[in-house]
Write a protein that binds this DNA or RNA. Structure first.
Lengths: 200, 200, 200, 200
DNA sequence: CATGAATGAGCGTTCATTCAT
DNA sequence: TATGAATGAACGCTCATTCAT
């Protein structure tokens, strides 16, 4: 219980500090201060600085993936599925803005450790979109000429960039619903076989 | 002329090294070695490490913006304009993969200096897309309910994510033309008023 | 009794760990693990890390000195006395190789605390040899021109170096008896007044 | 020239500091201060702390070995050879008391790196004594029942212990000549075939 | 007495920046 | 201009020691 608390405290402190200062600029002592523990305490729970970052992903991103997949499995309509993915992603990003920053900033790092993680776990997350699209193509709802590999990048990249700026500045004050509506009104129209014939 | 050469040599060496190792992991001595100059020489041309990064953007991104704007001003059709932006962006990313990495990776850094730059110059580049969309809405080609601020992020984010993976892995072997075609077939359909009535 | 046990357990665990890793490289947690007690428990019996080392000497070396002096007091012949010292020393070193390593390695440490100990207790041990030699000179068995202060160092140094390598490598497989025989055949011949006239 | 100077300055500063404080207690900043250079400068000449220690041996001990071997090759008499070894060793120890301390203290360290060095280079030095003894046995001067492997340890250990105390305290004020005379009067008598028949 | 989680001072090492040549 | 040796501030990590339980 005590240990659980401390582990969690450090994770969320690290998320906050990484988001604010970036991985390389963040000092271990910053995280320790934020978590209100001694510097050394951090090393009772994590092997090193990278391990903290990885743990942030492993735990926090893991939750999002899990959650999203559960919701998707209960929905058959590929249009609804795309909506679920978009709203889940944006809601998660909005809920924990620090985590959003960390994902968006650090995931781009070229560091070996991070790269490996990104290639394994994160592309699985983005892959969900490809699965949805293929499903929609089989169902005859999405255009067969759409390349799922490209479309998944386009859809995820769009969401990602929107939430990036969302957090960085206050330029846009759109709600999650507004964004989802706009995104789907563009993408669904764009990838559906014949919008005119499909009820909505 | 000699100095011009050295300045340029350092810029492209830095682009290469930043792309390979990331800004924080890159050492000044790495850049110096790559540029075949002494460490100290770099400080005759740049104030500090951040200044090098900024100069990379200033000069290299500057060229892209300039180029893109010139091409856009010669084209009235907002659909063609969107195509121009997409292909220009992707071509630039393909031409200089190192620069692409630098933009994609470092632009996310939360460093104060970088943030300022990003907020000033880079959002101007992304802003081009908003201008195109607004132009399309005035012309009656693009749907008036589309929010240019969101759509510009979506469009740019899609392009950016595609070219990110493009560089990182060899997962996708799509050509610039294929990508542009797919992107426009989705986005144009998505934001046009009535695709069926529009000639192409 | 329970406490006695624990004190002893820690002492012998420390002897083992110090021998294996050296004083500075050894961690308190290593000793604790070896002694199967908690880290904190060690501080119930010892003031600090140095105190453990000192206690190792105090107790273990103390036994050797005591033992040797008892045996020596029962023997009058200075030649036999030298033999007793040599065989006692080598046997002790062979019996507890860990202790041997600790004495040989750590005794050389220049740490203030250790130095003080060394200068007090250990030189007393080496001093036994000088006493033997002086006794032999008074008895008319050892050459009067031999300087006991030098000879004691030479004799002890020889024994020490032999047992050092003995422990470190397996270069020499000589038995204690062989070594004592060789040592005495050299030293006794070297310091006796006239070997030819002395019975053996 | 400049670099040579700095390398040498650091080596001798390190020798001094290691002798005073011991390898583990010595801080890099101590060495830097003693050498009147910045901490970082040390790393322009050495890879790490151990490398400094190794270099001290490599360079300083190397000189002694070289010197001793040169003198020995010019002398055929095994008795004179033993004298040369003893006086060379003691003179070197007296000349650079810091180096003497370092050799005596650090050589006992159980550290992997040091152990490797010790096993390679240092036993070669001690091996010189064995070579001398074997040579004396072949020549019919030294007793054939003497084990060179044991005798070399005894001789070196005796010298080593004498010079150890010599440096540590001021207990003995014997000159190099006195010590060599005493040592040889004991050892030569002890290992010679028949002292009575040998002129000297 | 015993525990082991928590502490935080301390140090080896790196690297952006300077400056004498 | 150009060099690259020298600088020293900064930081990740370790581990002896403490203390609440």
């Amino acid at each position: 219980m005590k240990a659980e608390n401390k582990h969690t405290k450090i994770i969320s402190a690290a998320t906050k500090v990484f988001a604010k200062k970036g991985f390389f600029t963040a000092r271990i002592s910053d995280i320790a201060k934020e978590a209100k523990v001694a510097d050394g305490t951090i090393y009772l729970y994590f092997n090193n600085k990278y391990d903290i970052l990885l743990s942030v992903f492993e735990e926090e991103v893991g939750k999002i993936v899990e959650n999203t997949e559960k919701l998707l499995s209960a929905e058959y309509d590929p249009r609804k599925q795309l909506e679920i993915f978009a709203s889940q992603h944006l809601m998660a990003m909005k809920k924990n803005r620090y985590l959003a920053e960390v994902i968006q900033i650090e995931l781009r790092q070229t560091h070996k450790v991070i790269k490996e993680y990104r290639d394994n776990k994160f592309s699985k997350y983005v892959g969900i979109v490809a699965v949805i699209i293929k499903h929609g193509q089989k169902t005859g709802i999405y255009r067969p000429d759409i390349k799922p590999d490209l479309a998944k990048r386009a859809f995820f990249g769009a969401l990602d960039e929107i939430s990036r700026v969302w957090n960085a500045s206050l330029e846009t004050n759109y709600s999650v619903e507004e964004i989802v509506t706009q995104m789907l009104s563009i993408f669904l129209t764009g990838i559906q076989i014949d919008p005119a014939n499909l009820p909505e």
